[in-house]
Nucleic acid binder design. Structure first.
Lengths: 229, 229
DNA sequence: TCAAAAGTGTTCGCTATACACCCATGG
DNA sequence: CCATGGGTGTATAGCGAACACTTTTGA
């Protein structure tokens, strides 16, 4: 047994992991992907996907690897938001976890190739989680809300083409507020971050489809604009 | 030599450190505290104060310990903002660093009891730093600017009592913008975050002194307000 | 037939901005 | 005496919030 412990240090080193809060939007509610733990501790409990940081990868690469394993998505919006370091947060040993949140388009998600059971939960229906993952999830939500004031992160959660109503529902889900439909519509169009797809709408009752205008966004970002909500 | 390496693991573990970007304000410019490295690598170069995380302390406790050693200050505003994990960021071994920034009142700072030479640099006069500390400093500045939209962090950098002009100079230094003196004055008073100290001003030419009204701030925070700048 | 959806208009009030003014001080 | 610093006032433009209207569809 002893000869397996071949990595030796003069001082104790904590383990380092990455955990990933994966957000999706189903058209009306914000969801988060959880995996069921198959081993102790917290066996049977739900937890955030995560794993040990490899010595040759950065934390972001590690988090992307987790994301890929769980959702099949290689490229997605991913952002580091906090590192959790309480000495007792893992009962087995000292573990420091670098936490990311990812924004994925739900309809592009394939089942993960991981053996573990994974499931999407609405944010207000998340069960008690393993370790300090409740706290991690709470902070991720907070950071997402904060981030939305500086970057149009919402678009990462919608399909390529979407209606203004869908966009509004998303913003309302993230910020937990209600907007006036008409004001939201005008405000969004006025920002010029949306490009209309189908210029001819036969039906006054069928909404326009839009795409996110990334070029225009980069333009505005140069000038240092803010998204007011 | 071998028998010093008594901490053994089945898998390799990175070292974990905390680094601390300590900001101060001298009345006209934003400053940052750097220490001169006494050992290789980067011997003689300037770097951010930092050190290894102890196994019984959280990262924040570690950062506070660094802050205390460098400035003598036990309580100050301190905030984790990013963890740097590039595999090659330290030429010796794999080191992950959890970075904090601290806001201190310059006039309360005592010399550090650390042996290392420490010095305050104006933000735009910072020399090339050791490791990836340039990048860390840049991100700290960015985060401070971002944070100021949600929390009145500026007050952490001023003395207990200050004039509106001083507050304006601070905001201008942080955000690198200029404000109209008269509009800034009214806006600040209108927010009601300031409590006037000397109600009688004998001299029309000597400015009022103010304190930060923390109670009022907590009130406003409940209602979810934003600082517009 | 009528409620619901989606695009368009209008009004009002707040506030950010620009800029004028007044007063006391000190060189 | 006048430039400077510091507190106060005012006018305008723009935008967000509230809410009316119109058309089309489908139950």
């Amino acid at each position: 047994m002893e000869d397996k412990l071949i990595y030796r240090y003069e001082y104790p080193h904590p383990s380092v992991t990455t955990d990933c809060v994966i957000f999706g939007f189903d058209g009306s509610r914000l969801k988060v992907l959880l995996v069921e733990r198959g081993v102790e501790p917290f066996k049977g409990k739900w937890a955030l996907p995560g794993g040990f940081l490899r010595m040759d990868e950065s934390a972001e690469q590690g988090a992307r690897r987790e994301l890929q394993e769980e959702t099949g998505l290689a490229a997605a919006y991913i952002k580091q938001f906090h590192t959790f370091t309480e000495p007792q947060r893992d009962p087995r040993e000292r573990v420091v976890t670098i936490a990311y949140y990812a924004l994925v388009k739900l309809q592009e998600v394939k089942g993960g190739d991981d053996a573990a059971r994974a499931e999407w939960f609405a944010l207000d229906e998340v069960p008690a989680l393993a370790f300090d993952h409740d706290q991690i999830l709470r902070m991720a939500t907070q950071e997402l809300r904060r981030q939305i004031h500086f970057e149009p992160v919402g678009f990462e959660l919608l399909p390529e083409e979407f209606t203004v109503k869908e966009l509004q529902l998303l913003y309302e889900a993230i910020l937990d507020v209600r907007f006036d439909r008409r004001n939201f519509y005008k405000k969004m169009l006025h920002l010029e971050l949306l490009t209309q797809v189908n210029t001819d709408h036969a039906n006054r009752n069928q909404p326009y489809l839009f795409r996110f205008n990334e070029e225009k966004y980069n333009e505005l970002k140069q000038k240092g604009f803010r998204l007011e909500f």
